[in-house]
Design a protein around this nucleic acid. Sequence first.
DNA 1: CTGGAAGTTCAAGTGAACTTGAAATCAAGA
DNA 2: TCTTGATTTCAAGTTCACTTGAACTTCCAG
Lengths: 142, 142
Amino acid sequence: MNLKSRPRPKHLRIGEIADRAGLRTSAVRYYESAGLLRHPDRVNGRRRYDETVLEELAVIRLAQLAGFTVAEIRTLMHGFARPTPPSERWRKLANAKLAEVDRKLADLEHMRIVLRSLLRCECPTLEDCARVLPPRAASRPG
Amino acid sequence: MNLKSRPRPKHLRIGEIADRAGLRTSAVRYYESAGLLRHPDRVNGRRRYDETVLEELAVIRLAQLAGFTVAEIRTLMHGFARPTPPSERWRKLANAKLAEVDRKLADLEHMRIVLRSLLRCECPTLEDCARVLPPRAASRPG
DNA sequence: CTGGAAGTTCAAGTGAACTTGAAATCAAGA
DNA sequence: TCTTGATTTCAAGTTCACTTGAACTTCCAG
């Protein structure tokens, strides 16, 4: 039989996985405990991975770049009844996240405006600077 | 003497201060303990304020709207040799903050781009979505 | 066999800006 | 006086994504 020709799955320890993914081993263990990665096989108590875990870590990274929290990534990866295509998974989560990102963007743009005006300030006291503010808590217009 | 005509400083308790500022009393105490507000007079152990504290709270709020942390606000309000005009105080802090805000803005813009592309995803698996990512940790280009 | 690197678990620490809880005190109206 | 509500202090909890520390165990080269 052609046992040799079949590429047998190299078993990798957590240190090598972490290195290849640019993570600390503690992060890999954390992802496992947080339900992002499933429990890998163990050899004498130590985790043994095959290379597919690197793809799962890449998914995690992609989702992080998109701003998703660990809880959201868990939903994304394991929170759907079986064969749910990525398109639907993303749609379920990305719209809300987009709205969230847009809110944060607006906040930061506002900060920029405030900061620029503060840099042009000529008030005699700090209290004078603050007098331009709306009387009370009016951060979100009713 | 015209004692009546002189507006005597109404002494306000912490609850009223908090209400007028749109804060919780716990926040006002926190600001005091964090060195943003000085220790007010006490009557029978309870804090008594005059209305000027509302202006200091307005300064705090302004600074928060600009994105400053509590530590930075403390510097702003009490971290300068005495008669330092606001212009100089703001300048010392606002430039760095502006750079910080711009970095966060860029991060969020990037998230937006990623999210929009995910919403257009047609990959058969999540792992395929992630294949477009740069091989390893390349978040900041060298 | 030995030493050191790498692995294990579990609890606790990090930072930011407050909030909450507990237990006690105080003011004021019925 | 009773009772309610506001206040006090202090420590600890909250959220997030990990990291760190302590105390062991296991693997591997020499």
